[in-house]
């Protein structure tokens, strides 16, 4: 295997490994911009993954499976938003509670779907683009969900920074009271943002089960939801930087497995630390380079909104 082939394979693996985390992280960016902290991403990914498997198994249709996963994501997102907005619960605690609950529910409901053959998504070469040297085989020899993720990131960025909804989103995330005074519905904006974010996380889960695992396994996400939440801070709430973080994470996974295959003589446990250390390192380096810019999140993040006070 020559160097270029190796690098290409690593990079293609990076895109695959990074995509589920990417989707969830971009979703969390959107949610947190509205001032809601959703720590339930791990659980929502699990729910999305299982829903996609069940629907794919029952209908044999990938399209329905993805739609169903998105719907479940939206539903759970609304539940979380409802808890946060109506009951003013502690958002850190509910997020963790939602994850515990969903890991239980998915394990319970998934019993009949373990080891079942489902219709999974296979790679689809983009006709002209996949012929490009290097980039073609890295970015355009993937599956439709990856291509979808290429579209989702700029769309999310545009949604936040280029639309009226984006303006209200940022307003309720920064100064909910002022936003409410200006006629923006804090409740509705936050609900929409949380639901959209959860839909993306569920899509990330569906990616894991439909593309990667091609079936259901308990705890299929193995902690990727938490990583996604972490990457949002890494990305300072910017979807583009979330992509960077997710791909960085994917790169380290892809690289360590391929280094092993290529015969690197390092303990696999030390190699396994690479994804985590790499993200920390890049975080530190990027902070050192732009020390002046403070990267505080939305000021109203995770603060319950009490309109009457």
């Amino acid at each position: 295997m020559d160097d270029l082939a190796f690098i290409t394979a690593v990079a293609a693996g990076m895109v695959r490994s990074g995509t589920p985390v990417l989707l969830a992280a971009v979703g969390e960016c959107l949610t947190e911009r509205s001032g809601i902290l959703n720590l339930g991403m791990e659980g929502i990914m699990l729910a999305g993954a299982l829903t996609a498997v069940i629907v794919s198994y029952l209908t044999g249709n990938i399209f329905f499976a993805i739609i169903a996963a998105l719907a479940i994501g939206a539903l759970i997102g609304l539940l979380h938003a409802f808890l946060c907005l109506y009951f003013h619960v502690n958002q850190v605690a509910t997020g963790i509670a939602v994850t515990i609950l969903l890991s239980g529910i998915t394990a319970f409901c998934g019993i009949d779907y373990v080891g079942k053959s489902i219709h999974s998504i296979s790679a689809y070469k983009v006709p002209w683009l996949s012929e490009l040297p290097f980039f073609g085989s890295v970015f355009f020899n993937q599956d439709i969900l990856v291509y979808l993720s290429y579209a989702i990131v700029p769309l999310t960025y545009f949604l936040i920074n280029g639309t009226r909804f984006g303006l209200s989103l940022k307003a309720v995330g920064e100064e909910p009271r002022a936003a409410a005074a200006a006629g923006v519905s804090v409740f509705r904006t936050r609900c929409i943002a949380t639901a959209l974010g959860a839909m993306l996380a569920a899509l990330g889960g569906a990616y894991l089960s439909l593309v990667y695992a091609q079936g259901w396994t308990e705890n299929i996400t193995a902690g990727r939801g938490w990583i996604a939440v972490g990457l949002v801070m890494f990305a300072s709430w910017n979807p583009w930087k979330a992509v960077l973080g997710a791909y960085l994470f994917g790169l380290a996974i892809s690289l360590q497995l391929r280094l092993q295959a290529a015969g690197a003589d390092v303990s696999p446990y030390l190699l396994g630390m690479a994804p985590y250390l790499l993200v920390i390192l890049v975080l530190a380096v990027s902070k050192l380079r732009q020390k002046k810019i403070p990267a505080a999140g939305p000021t109203a993040l995770s603060i319950p909104y009490l309109p009457q006070v």
Binding site: A9, G13, A213, I220, A222, S254, P268, G272
Partner: peptide
């Protein structure tokens, strides 16, 4: 026989990627 360790008893995504890495390796 080329061995790749995943460090995990169950993590389908990493298992799939490990398999893909070996396949890329020929």
């Amino acid at each position: 026989v080329k061995v790749v360790w995943t460090n995990k008893w169950v993590d389908p995504a990493v298992e799939a990627e490990a398999a893909k890495g070996l396949i890329d390796n020929g």
